[in-house]
Design a protein around this nucleic acid. Structure first.
Length: 325
DNA sequence: ATGGTTTTTACTGCGTC
DNA sequence: GACGCGGTAAAAACCAT
């Protein structure tokens, strides 16, 4: 492995062409500011003091995708044709081609064509190896439909399909509807990706009632050991604030209020949305914004009663919110 | 299944515009 | 009188056991 060696030599040979690119080379560690040294054998540059590996290669040998955790890295890594989760066999199975020519471009005789036609039919039937494969194909259809209805990205849908696959492998589908599990998988995927689609919305878009959906979601995350990061109150503030058309100042003030509430332990056991909603309402009221409990209740899906409860707890804390953040 | 907790639903009373 | 707001009681939902 002498890639690094090679391009170093080349750059000094015809410095004019490559000079620009190499001039703004990093010479200090972006992490600790330490001195960088080249490791020729491994084709990488590392920081002498902290050991950070700095990408230093004219050609990027890395994948074009980014992985944010080891699981994703495993999931996304691939060699060969791109896989897609959107086909029940991940698009990896053999497909017998149409078109009347063979690989060499020669026309295929009509007798041969007929044989190929029969082969194609048998092959297609054999592609669904089992009932679960057929179910998977159906689940994928449903997940994609839901994803489109909820306007979530293909990545999220793909992850949902992966989750469904795991559920299928773990024999979690038995006794549950495919659509229900599909919806639960998609909801889980949304949660994992921090996409705010709440249970109600997903339930309404699928023909699964909220209760069942949540039950399925619970067994899903539980049985598959999926750790879903909990939404915190503060996560909801921006959404609520913009939904109510509050200024950025009020939004950050609401966040400040949420933080203090957390410090005071007022948040444990309470629905995060209720804290967020009440904080937004509290700061809006304080700033004499024309806003009613009812409006807040509607845009946040938190009942007015709960809003009042939280408001009562939060309003005394308002004067402790720092002015600037 | 159970019990403790929070949230929601439904309803009522009060003050204001 | 409609509306916003505050409260209560009971039901429902949630969570850990």
């Amino acid at each position: 492995m002498s890639t690094n060696q090679e391009h170093k030599e080349r750059s000094s040979a015809d410095g004019e062409v490559d000079g620009d690119r190499f001039e703004d080379h990093v010479t200090e560690c972006p992490e600790c500011g330490g001195r960088l040294e080249a490791n020729e054998a491994r084709g990488e540059t590392t920081c002498a003091s902290c050991g950070l590996v700095v990408e230093d290669d004219a050609i990027d040998y890395g994948p074009e995708w980014r992985a944010f955790n080891p699981q994703e890295s495993k999931d996304k890594a691939r060699t060969g044709a791109p896989m897609t989760e959107s086909l029940h066999d991940r698009g990896l199975s053999t497909v017998i081609g149409y078109g009347g020519r063979d690989a060499g471009g020669q026309r295929i005789s009509s007798g041969t064509r007929h044989r190929i036609y029969r082969m194609r039919r048998l092959h297609r039937q054999a592609s669904f190896r089992s009932g679960s494969e057929r179910n998977l194909a159906q689940a994928i259809t449903e997940i994609k439909r839901l994803a489109a209805a909820l306007d979530v990205s293909d990545d999220v849908a793909d992850q949902a399909i992966r989750i469904y696959r795991r559920a299928s492998d773990a024999d979690l589908i038995r006794g549950r509807s495919i659509d229900g599990m599909s919806a639960a998988a998609l909801y889980t995927s949304c949660r994992l990706n921090g996409i705010p689609r709440d249970l109600d919305l997903v339930a309404r878009s699928s023909h699964v009632d909220r209760r069942t959906l949540h039950r399925t979601y619970r067994t899903l995350t539980h049985e598959l050991d999926i750790k879903v990061p909990l939404f915190r109150a503060i996560d909801h503030v921006p959404r609520f604030a913009s939904g109510l058309e509050l200024s950025a100042q009020l939004e950050s003030r609401a966040m400040g209020l949420v933080r203090i509430a957390e410090d005071e332990g007022l948040t444990s056991g309470r629905a995060p949305t209720s804290i967020a909603a009440a904080s937004v309402l509290a700061v809006a009221k304080e700033a004499d914004v024309d806003i009613t409990q009812k409006q807040v209740a509607e845009t946040t899906s938190v009942s007015e009663v709960t809003l009042r409860h939280r408001l009562r707890e939060l309003e005394p804390l308002l004067d402790r919110v720092e002015v600037d953040a």
